[in-house]
Amino acid sequence: MAPLLSLEHVSKNFGALKVIDDLSLSLDAGEALGILGPNGAGKTTLFNLIAGDLPVGAGAIRFAGEDVTGLPAYIRCRRGIGRTYQIPHPFGNMSVFENVLAGAAFGATRREAESYERCIDLLRLTNLLGKANLPAGKLTLLERKRLELARALATDPKMLLLDEIAGGLTDTECQLLIETIRAVHRSGVSIVWIEHVVHALIAVVGRLFVINFGQKLADGEPRAVMESPQVQEVYMGIEER
């Protein structure tokens, strides 16, 4: 079976700086993939390329059997690529409920009234139902991150790109988040998760992909990847919680 997502020799430069350098990557439907790498390795840029927020410099991106390289972000979203932002981008003057509704009404192209129930369910899942009528701009950082998740899920993604949503959580909160993402994964959504909180990542994903200087450093079973000499070297000094 063809993979759900494949990047073929993708490169991206910012001026003279090579941020993504001839990177290839593939993801099967139903997989959960973790992405690790030091700061500045190009992880968020990789998401921007996959989601269509940035055009690739070279190479091709295929999703669900279609070449999406030239498609704008909103069409990729409708094809099933959902994403959260590392730095949350809430619609600050809209209510929390309307934020999620926007995802359901446009990403999933449902009629507005048919989306209401789904939005309520997602707000409950992300524990934001009590704040449904609050302007999203009034949420705390952690609540904004949960809103990112709810809004991305509202678009009915086939694949969910999660960009560092576990940072700053207490152990209990982190455990809840892990349960939530597992439930999303069980429901059939493929996951690609960038995260520095390695133990949370390993609790969910079945495969790890490590990038450094925009190139693949390792790819495989999480424990084997973490113990490989190259990864150990790059991660020297970065503690594993």
Binding site: P90, M94, F106, G107, A152, T155
Partner: peptide, 24 residues
Amino acid sequence: SRQGLALTAIRDSETAAGSVGINN
């Protein structure tokens, strides 16, 4: 309307509006 939902979303964040499927 639905158009208004898209419009207010764009007003607040063009980037995020694109990422939830809104044709800005």
